[in-house]
Amino acid sequence: MNIRIIKFLCLGLAAIFLTIGCGKKEAPAAIAPLVKTQKIDAASDSLSNTYAGSVHGRYETNLSFQVGGKILQRTVQAGDRVHVGDILMTLDSKDIVQQVNQSEAKAEAAYAELQLAKANLSRYNQLFAQNAVPKASLDQYQTTYNSALAGYQQATAQTFQDRNSLSYTNLTADADGVISAIDAEAGQVISAGQTVLTLVQTNELEVEINVPENNIGELAVNAHALVSFWALPDSSVDGTIREISPVADPTARTYRVRISLPQPPDNLKLGMTAGVVCTLSDTASSTYILPLSAIYQTGNNPEVWIVSEDKTVSLKQVQVFSFDENHVKVLGLNNGDIVVTAGVQKLRDGETVRLDDSNTKGSNT
């Protein structure tokens, strides 16, 4: 009986010791989460964008006649270089010559009436001085003279206008340049103001590019641009953004940007294809491109997780500059920051993480 009690006591003590031993055993430490990161550096800094464009003249003039008529002759071809005063097209002037003849005849008739009115007025002035005629008669001849004088001036003005119209039958170049387009041919009847030629002045060449609406805010007038030409592989020149269109193209939704070329290459030609690297404005100079998965949204404030030197994470508020389907361009980061790019919803402020070294470096833009 005693032996059986002793066995039960031994088993009870063993269970107690096992329980005490299990209670003192420490729980295994939690493993820090492994995160993908991107280091903010020059490689992820959006310093410039490249656009394709073409060479244009700064001044492109649509030439037209100031009078209508039938084109008698065209003296230039597309691509011809012209100089100030060169005759480019000629209209048939027969009808205008007749108009000049008519206006000159009317001017001569008006002059004859003026001389008659002048003679009558002079005669009645003498009679009035002798009290031979009343003042009313003198006033009548004075009015006739004034009317004749106005008629003569009107006829003379019409004559000068018709003579000018005769000179307008020759379309001349008003600047040195190149004929880039021909819109009318000999034998065609055109109206006044209808475009017949396009003259491009080649003393100032520019490059025109089209910038998407989500990038137009990155550019500024007078900003620097580096321009290269596909047909001239060894020629790269500095340019300056001269003009940014305030209105987007209604179809393409792009904005036209003009880059002036202070020192273009000597063999640069109109219409050549160019590549333009635009330096961003000061507002966009501190923007960085991250994957969309790096954004941690807290209410209306976008944030990112920043990994500190001791491998702990903390939230940092950023400003979204622009975004597309896979990437986002943000403001508010500093060069050297390490940003978590995946698993941001599972992190806690101050939590220790492990870095995936294969994803630490910034990606090229």
Score class of each variant (00 low, 15 high):
A15Y: 03
I31G: 09
P33Q: 09
V35N: 05
V35R: 04
V35E: 02
T37K: 05
N49Q: 13
A52P: 13
L63T: 03
V67W: 05
V67T: 07
V76P: 00
V82M: 07
L88P: 04
M89W: 06
D92M: 13
S93H: 04
K94E: 11
Q99E: 05
V100C: 05
L114G: 00
L127G: 11
D139K: 10
Y145E: 09
S147N: 08
A148C: 07
T156Y: 09
N164D: 15
T169I: 14
A173P: 10
D174G: 14
I182P: 07
D183Y: 08
D183E: 13
D183C: 04
A186M: 11
I190N: 08
I190V: 15
V196E: 07
Q201V: 01
E204D: 06
V211K: 03
V227M: 08
W230N: 09
I241A: 01
I244N: 06
V257N: 01
L270C: 04
A274K: 00
G275D: 12
C278S: 04
L280Y: 09
S281T: 10
I289V: 14
Q297R: 13
G299S: 05
W305G: 05
K311W: 14
V313I: 10
L315D: 07
Q317E: 14
F321P: 13
F323K: 11
